[in-house]
Amino acid sequence: MSVHKRMNFETKQAIKNALISQIEEVGFERVTVKGLALVANINRGTFYLHYTDKFAVMEDIQQELLHSLRERVKNIRLVDATHAIQAGQLYQPFVEVIQYIKEQATFFRVLLGEQGNPAFSMGVRNLFSEQILRNLIVIQADKLDMEFCKYLCAFISSAVLGVIQEWLVNGDEHLSVEKLAMIHFRLLKFLGEMWSY
């Protein structure tokens, strides 16, 4: 990476970090470009070289997080995950998803929290839901009840997102990635066993 590109990247990262910090402190509605520039330790002119306003910064953060999350979520295969659950083992692609969320915990915590953006929360849920649906189509394409599938995807994706939000928003980040993955699997296994009675 050239010096110029690295400087651009670092400046944009400082602006993104400043936005998250300001959202936590004053809420998105009260964030100003002046405040962002101050926290990012740049002048307003430099801010405008990279973004038009705070909404553009928010959009950039969300798109970057969703893109990186999608790259990890697409590796999840329900059949393999089910075998892992039944064997009481960790499923590595899911662990990688949680690891990424932990690495970006501050961003996810703020954007999925009360001060965050409901559209981002919906974007994460839809991302999980789309992958679940793709997996269901592969597994049971010939006997798929699309109406049931739609609600099943909504149920599972909301449950997964709910556990992640609980982990982030309530400061449970001390739980290891592996422990959180195992909690997800224990929940799914518990529900499966409960319904089989």
Rank of each mutant, 00 (worst) to 15 (best):
L133I: 14
T32Y: 06
F108H: 12
F55R: 14
R134K: 09
E178M: 02
V3K: 15
A154N: 12
F107R: 03
V31D: 02
A40H: 05
T32M: 03
Y151V: 01
K189D: 07
L49E: 08
L90Y: 12
R109I: 01
K74R: 08
S157Y: 04
G171R: 08
H4A: 10
Y197T: 15
R70L: 13
S157V: 02
K5Y: 13
N17Y: 06
W167Q: 00
H4W: 10
I101K: 04
N8V: 02
R72D: 13
V3H: 15
D172S: 12
L187K: 02
V110M: 01
Y91V: 00
N117C: 12
V33A: 07
K12E: 13
Q165I: 03
M1V: 09
R109Y: 05
N135I: 12
V33Q: 03
Y51T: 05
S68D: 15
Q104Y: 07
N126G: 08
T32P: 02
K54L: 11
Q131P: 01
T52C: 05
E71P: 05
I76C: 03
V97R: 00
V169I: 14
V160M: 13
W167K: 02
E147A: 04
L69M: 07
G45R: 08
P93Q: 06
L144G: 11
G192H: 04
M7Q: 11
I98Y: 05
A154D: 11
V160I: 15
D172H: 15
D53A: 04
V57L: 06
L180T: 03
C149H: 10
F94H: 07
F185L: 04
M146D: 15
I137C: 09
S129Y: 02
V124L: 03
L188I: 06
L188Y: 08
K12M: 09
V138Q: 09
G192Q: 01
V160Y: 10
D172F: 12
R70S: 14
V73N: 00
Q62C: 06
R30Q: 14
G123E: 05
S196Y: 13
A154V: 12
V110C: 03
E10G: 08
K189Y: 07
F155G: 10
V33C: 06
T82N: 09
R134H: 12
N43E: 11
F148C: 15
M182Y: 05
I98K: 01
A87C: 09
R44Q: 15
D60P: 00
N126E: 12
M122G: 13
T11F: 07
H83E: 10
T11K: 05
V73R: 01
S121L: 07
Q63C: 09
V79T: 11
M194H: 14
V3T: 14
S196E: 14
I132L: 11
C149G: 12
E130G: 04
I183T: 06
Y100W: 09
M194C: 13
L19Q: 00
M1G: 10
V57T: 03
